[in-house]
Amino acid sequence: MILSIDLSSDVPIYQQIRDRVVEAIAAGDLAEGSALPSTRQLAGDLGINFHTVNKAYDLLRQEGLLRLNRKSGAVVQRDPGSGPPPPGFTEEWSSRLRTLLAEAVAQGMDGTAVLEACGRVVGSFGTGADMAPGTGPGAGHGVGPDVKSGMGRGSQGEPA
């Protein structure tokens, strides 16, 4: 997988890194046990401060998606095949989902359009859980332009 961030975005860089890693895990580009680049390596590849990458990795650790230690570095701890989510996850996630869906409705999207968009996104993860006709892997999975860093199962920056 290729990690893309947009340095001119209003979304903080650490949040973009966190979001792209979560998306890669969901899409199957990063499986349980996959090693991520060190904070210094990824920071150098992206041309950012390593503390920014550290903040993103720490968020992922708090969310239970990464395991961090000095010896093995950052390793994916959970993926779609890891079983049901940990206790409390669904309630907290549902609250965030409600707000995200409310944003779409507040901007004028109707329920059908919101569900179709949700189906395209879920379908882009290759889970087979498409909710809208004509969706599939890769549909609606855009990441910003910009700075890219190789990350995942590929070698030396090649896409996984």
Rank of each mutant, 00 (worst) to 15 (best):
P159R: 08
Q107F: 15
T39C: 04
T135V: 07
W93H: 15
A24S: 14
H51G: 08
F89G: 01
V121Y: 04
G150L: 00
D45C: 06
G64Q: 04
L68K: 03
I25S: 05
D58H: 08
L101R: 11
A139N: 05
G119W: 09
G64N: 09
Q107H: 15
L46E: 10
A160K: 03
P85Q: 12
G64C: 01
D6F: 03
G154C: 06
A113P: 00
S72F: 05
E63K: 11
G119E: 09
E63L: 12
E92G: 05
R61W: 12
G128C: 05
G136P: 00
R98Y: 07
S4I: 02
A139L: 00
L65W: 15
A104D: 14
V114W: 12
L60T: 04
V143T: 10
Y14H: 11
A160D: 11
G119N: 10
G152S: 03
A160V: 03
S95K: 08
R61H: 13
H141V: 03
T112G: 07
D19M: 14
A27T: 03
T135H: 02
V22N: 09
S124M: 00
D130M: 02
V143H: 07
S94A: 13
L97V: 14
V75N: 04
G128W: 06
G64I: 04
E103Q: 15
V121A: 06
G128V: 10
A139G: 01
G150V: 07
G47T: 07
Q62W: 09
V75C: 05
P137D: 06
A104N: 05
T127I: 01
G126P: 01
C118F: 14
T99V: 10
S124K: 03
K148S: 06
Q77W: 13
S38L: 06
S95F: 12
P85S: 13
G111F: 11
R20V: 14
E23P: 00
I48P: 01
S8E: 12
A56E: 14
R98E: 11
K55H: 12
R20D: 15
P133F: 01
R67C: 02
D130P: 00
G138F: 01
L101S: 07
R40L: 11
D29G: 13
D10V: 10
R153P: 00
S95G: 08
S95T: 12
A160Q: 08
A35T: 08
S94L: 11
G73W: 01
P159F: 09
A35H: 09
L66K: 04
Q16W: 15
S38I: 08
R40M: 03
L60C: 09
F89I: 10
E116F: 09
D10T: 06
G28D: 05
W93F: 15
T52W: 05
T112E: 15
L36Q: 04
I5Y: 01
N54I: 00
Y57K: 00
R120W: 11
A106K: 10
T135D: 05
M131W: 06
L101E: 13
L42N: 04
S4Q: 11
Y57Q: 00
R18H: 04
I17M: 08
G134R: 05
